[in-house]
Amino acid sequence: MSLLRQVMDHPLDPGYEAARRATGGVRPQRGVVTRIWVGLLAVLLGAVTVVAARELRRPEPSALAARTLLESQISERQGDVDTLSRRVSQVGAEVETLRSDALSDASPSLLDTLNRDGVLSGSTALQGPGVVVTLRDAPVLKDADVDPDSRVQDLDLQIVVNSLWSVGAEAVAINDQRLTPVTAVRSAGDAILVNLQPVSSPYSVVAIGDPGKLQSGLARSPAGDWMVSLTNFGIQSSTVGQSELDVPGDDSVRLRYARPVESPATDGSGDATPAAGGPTSDEDQGYGQ
């Protein structure tokens, strides 16, 4: 206890009093050499202290290195993905051109069917007049707990999208994710997935169709009431008609069961054999969903 008492009661370095006693109560006059030493030591100590403090504020070098490595890997892979997706759309456009070239002479009706199927399946990008419905999460104070009710839910987007379809939208995309016959709008944890890709607030639902009809129809549809009631939770929404809108195509439409014939039939018999064993009930189900 005496040690603690000593520390508590006499925190001042005893050297100060000792120095004062040694000189008999007057301020000591020191020689030039001592003063230079004192000055040099003071510079050194100040520098050491501030350097130590700076060093302690710096993040751990190893953690920093790992972070930098991860960051560079992420951006590298991101670049790869970008290059590959550019290549995909480039090749897709090439295929499209070649197909329409080949079919425009040989079988124009087949080309029409293909184009219509492309629109319906969402694999071709489209443009035209339409409306943009924007839904925005309620503003949240920084670091505050987020009330799940104040965020846009998958159900909200589903209702808006279904109402848009029902009032005559011809193509719909959410945050540049085209809705196809096999698209699901659903939530996984906190995120909303469209085409299995996470989308985040603000959600902009782009629908192509007659803007006036879409706007008035949407206001009268269940989605109109729904969006009004969403304002109670702080979720803002707006519907804007525009004369020129783009919706992207969805590259993920692909064959699941059918595969191309290995060697094209050359016998010329009119009895065309179905490529993959004929349409069985399995294949029907595969496309029906």
Partner: peptide
């Protein structure tokens, strides 16, 4: 006085030079 001035000089030097530890 020398000590205080010296400390300030040291602090400024440490901030400016940023030596590695």
């Amino acid at each position: 006085m020398i000590a205080v001035v010296g400390l300030i000089v040291g602090v400024v030097a440490g901030l400016l030079l940023q030596p590695s530890v």
